[in-house]
């Protein structure tokens, strides 16, 4: 673990790289599910496919929309979603900024980029009133695709997941099964569920049950 602190104005904030210098084994939030035989081999043939994207970098940004927008645009090249429930992605869809509440946004970047991004944002924001929290270890992202993905969601969330309720570029925090989820629609054929790490196994069990009639496969790239 390496500690870094910028000399300028962030010295009072302890930042911390959660990726150790020497690579060590890490377990995805679905490790327990895999152990219980709930994770399938890649390339399932069902009508619903749930693929975990573990070890991404999740950052929570809090602060004023205008100052954060400038910094995020400069460092990430993505506009901060100004309107409620917005979701903005970069050109290839691997980085995203999601509106969580009027002063709170969720940034998801490929794993390993988050510490550097956090430092660059801190540097740029300087003395502005803001907070950045690395929540990568606390939540995971599950992609839901397939022709019956929407039917499975309709059984699971109270929100209207039809395209008029949840169009591409919208993301809502809502109830999934009996837990909370950030439900995102990055593209027409795909939903994303950002779930709590400790509820990942529960969500997978729920998805397997809800998708049983359509044929469902749950995959995690490390399996």
């Amino acid at each position: 673990m390496s500690e870094a602190g910028s000399e300028t104005n962030v010295s009072r904030v302890a930042v911390f790289d959660t990726h150790p210098v020497e690579p060590i084994d890490a377990e995805s939030p679905l490790a327990w599910s895999r152990q219980r035989g709930l994770v399938d081999a890649a390339g399932g043939s069902g009508q619903v496919r749930a693929v975990e994207r573990p070890f991404l970098g999740h950052l929570i940004l809090r602060g004023g929309a205008i100052t954060l927008d400038e910094a995020v645009r400069a460092e990430l090249g993505i506009n901060l979603p100004g309107k409620p429930l917005g979701l903005n992605l970069d050109a290839d869809g691997s980085r995203s900024v999601q509106w969580l509440s009027p002063d709170e946004w969720l940034v998801i970047v490929p794993g390993g980029e988050e510490f550097e991004l956090e430092n660059r944002l801190r540097e740029r924001l300087g003395d502005a009133h803001f907070a950045i929290v690395n929540v990568s270890g606390g939540q995971t992202l599950v992609e839901l695709s397939g022709e019956k993905a929407r039917e499975v969601l309709m059984k699971s969330v109270t929100y209207d997941v039809h395209s008029h309720g949840l169009p591409v570029g919208k993301a809502v925090g809502t109830v999934f099964a009996k837990t909370s989820v950030n439900l995102r629609r990055p593209s027409e054929d795909r939903f994303e569920l950002v779930v709590r790490r400790s509820f990942a196994d529960y969500c997978v069990r729920w998805l397997r049950d809800a998708g049983r009639e359509y044929g469902v496969s749950v995959e995690s790239p490390t399996s």
């Binding site: 409620p84 429930l85 509440s101 009027p102 109270t158 929100y159 109830v175």
Partner: peptide
């Protein structure tokens, strides 16, 4: 089950969320 308008999310949501 009914809907409540959240002034921050700017839309009606299920009562279960509140």
């Amino acid at each position: 089950m009914f809907h409540i308008f959240c002034p921050y999310c700017d839309e009606r949501r299920e009562e279960e969320e509140f």
